[in-house]
Amino acid sequence: MGKIAQRIIPHDLEPDVLRLELIDLGDAFRAYQQRTEPNLVLLAELPACAPSFQDSAPH
């Protein structure tokens, strides 16, 4: 493990995979924002809609 800005960085961090996950999460959030009525349950589930970085990391 290394450190960047005093934060511990895992040795198996894959920035490209993380970037794609954040893009997917952003797309899901923007789609949510287009709704006419708020739905807190759906909003809480948005992170589950994006593929998980941990699930896509090699083992």
Rank of each mutant, 00 (worst) to 15 (best):
A57Q: 15
Q34A: 14
L20R: 11
I23V: 11
A50H: 04
M1W: 12
Y32F: 14
A5D: 15
I23Q: 07
L13N: 06
V17L: 14
C49D: 14
R7K: 12
L40P: 00
K3W: 10
A31P: 02
D55H: 08
D24N: 11
E37G: 07
F29N: 00
L13V: 08
P47H: 02
Q33Y: 05
I23T: 07
G2Q: 10
L40H: 05
A44T: 03
D16K: 13
G2D: 04
A50N: 05
T36L: 04
L43G: 04
R35P: 07
D55E: 15
L20S: 07
A44I: 01
I8M: 06
D16Q: 12
P10F: 07
M1Y: 12
D55R: 05
V41C: 00
L18N: 01
A50I: 03
A5L: 15
A57N: 11
A44H: 08
R7Q: 10
P15K: 06
F53L: 11
L20Q: 08
A57E: 13
L22R: 02
D27W: 03
G26C: 06
A50E: 03
Q54V: 03
P58C: 09
H59R: 15
H59I: 00
S56T: 12
Q6A: 14
E45T: 11
D12F: 11
I8S: 10
D16S: 13
A5G: 09
P10R: 14
L40R: 09
G2M: 08
D55Y: 01
Q54W: 09
K3Q: 11
R35M: 12
E45K: 13
Q34T: 06
N39L: 10
E21R: 09
I9V: 15
P15N: 06
R30P: 05
H59Q: 11
E45V: 01
T36F: 00
A31F: 05
L25N: 02
H59K: 15
D12S: 09
L43R: 08
P38V: 09
A5P: 00
I9S: 09
A44K: 04
L25Y: 05
F53P: 04
V17F: 05
C49Y: 14
V17E: 09
I23L: 12
I4P: 01
L43K: 06
I4D: 09
E14H: 10
I9R: 13
S52T: 03
R30S: 04
V41W: 01
P47D: 05
R19M: 09
M1S: 12
Q34N: 04
